[in-house]
């Protein structure tokens, strides 16, 4: 595998073909904030928080680092006035849904985001899709999925599958950046209404 030399925040980083900028940065101990990224999962590119500036020759553009592949002579800047401004806004938009998420609040402090900027619509879910993708890609159970689109998009458990698979798994709960509130809530609701013929598992 050919090594590719990139420069991230002034630091020379060796990366290999097929790596993303985020992976290259992480390998060199450079931190880029993420919400929807997980090393076991296919890159998603949904939260956009990992946006960075890349420069090839004279051409600068802003890309999200979790999906952008490294290339020769790439220069990456992980912070700039504009990048911080974008991250601040993304956090403020998300905080309207999950105002108590410690992960979001920590990041908000770093980027000076005002958690009360937008009216609260506390649905808790920030649509990072970690639970949905983990259940699909790692567990191959597909007990939880997305429904609808746009601003009506939600996560929803398939009650029959959830009843069978979830009680003994629950691996998605700790992945949730909003502390599994939504996952737990939706799961409970799915399992109780409509009532299922399912016998509660002995572990409950």
């Amino acid at each position: 595998m050919s090594d590719i030399l990139v420069r991230i925040d002034g630091k020379e980083v060796e990366a290999s073909q097929g790596m993303t900028v985020l992976e290259a940065a992480q390998s060199a101990g450079i931190s880029i904030p993420t919400l929807c990224h997980h090393e076991k999962l296919e890159p998603f590119g949904g939260c956009r928080l990992c946006i960075v500036e890349v420069q090839v020759g004279d051409w600068m553009k802003r890309v999200v680092s979790c999906v952008y592949p490294v290339e020769k002579n790439l220069i990456v800047r992980t912070r700039s006035e504009m990048i911080d401004k974008i991250r601040k806004m993304i956090l403020e938009l998300q905080l309207a849904h999950a105002p108590d998420s410690p992960e979001l609040l920590d990041l908000a402090q770093e980027y000076g985001a005002d958690k009360d900027r937008f009216d609260k619509e506390a649905s808790f879910c920030i649509h990072c899709g970690l639970c949905v993708r983990y259940c699909d890609e790692v567990k191959k159970k597909n007990a939880v999925g997305f429904v609808d689109r746009g601003i009506r998009k939600e996560i929803s458990f398939i009650p029959e599958i959830a009843a069978k698979e979830c009680w003994n798994c629950k691996e998605c709960f700790p992945l949730c950046p909003t502390e599994a509130l939504q996952a737990a809530f939706v799961l409970t609701k799915s399992l109780t209404s409509p009532p299922l013929s399912h016998e509660p598992s002995s572990e409950e």
Binding site: C47, I90, L93, Q94, H127, R149, G150, I151
Partner: peptide, 18 residues
């Protein structure tokens, strides 16, 4: 567009909502 956004990314889904 709010109705037609796929809802995958935050700047579009949440930005348009606001």
């Amino acid at each position: 567009l709010t109705d037609e956004s796929c809802g995958k990314c935050v700047p579009c889904r949440e930005g348009l909502r606001q």
